[in-house]
């Protein structure tokens, strides 16, 4: 029983993680789940970057006693990914800080409720009327009735 090709499996894992992360960012309604989806997408992107430096049958890029191995994997993507992992965790902590701040201000993490709150606050701060949105049909008859009555 022969296992499938290693490159095919690795690209499946990387693109699967990127796809599932993008799907979660688009489809999820809760901010914590969106942050988790961004973390998944980061992991998939790191895996894809690591795959660019991989060479079949090579050894780890470690020089022992000054002897450079004949065939070793590319160490540059490894250094980049090492930095990207740490930066990703820092960005994740920053995102969770913003989520905590939103929760203390508005008391909800549902993006649909948050959008109405933010639109109202932005319109109030800018001094303009509320822009048309999904709940505009509820407002239009009231305005028309008020205009017709006066």
């Amino acid at each position: 029983m022969t296992p499938p090709d290693i490159g095919l499996m690795l690209f499946t894992a990387a693109f699967g993680l990127v796809g599932i992360g993008a799907l979660g960012i688009v489809m999820a309604n809760h901010l914590v789940r969106i942050v988790l989806s961004i973390v998944l997408l980061e992991t998939g992107a790191n895996l894809l970057l690591m795959l660019s430096g991989y060479r079949a049958g090579a050894v780890a890029p470690i020089i022992v006693d000054g002897v450079v191995p004949a065939s070793m994997v590319d160490p540059v993507p490894q250094a980049l990914v090492l930095t990207a992992i740490v930066i990703g965790v820092a960005v994740q902590a920053f995102m969770m800080t913003l989520v905590l701040r939103l929760y203390t201000v508005y008391g909800t993490l549902d993006i649909r409720e948050l959008r109405t709150h933010l639109e109202r606050d932005l319109a109030k701060a800018a001094g303009v009327p509320l822009p048309g949105s999904a709940d505009a049909p509820l407002d239009v008859p009231a305005t028309v009735m008020r205009k017709g009555g006066s």
Binding site: I20, A28, L40
Partner: peptide, 21 residues
């Protein structure tokens, strides 16, 4: 053996990613 390990890790990662959602 490395191929089997990669297959196992791939399956675990994809199942975990779906479980997150």
């Amino acid at each position: 053996l490395a191929n089997w390990i990669v297959l196992l890790a791939t399956v675990i990662m994809l199942v975990g990613a779906v479980a997150v959602l």
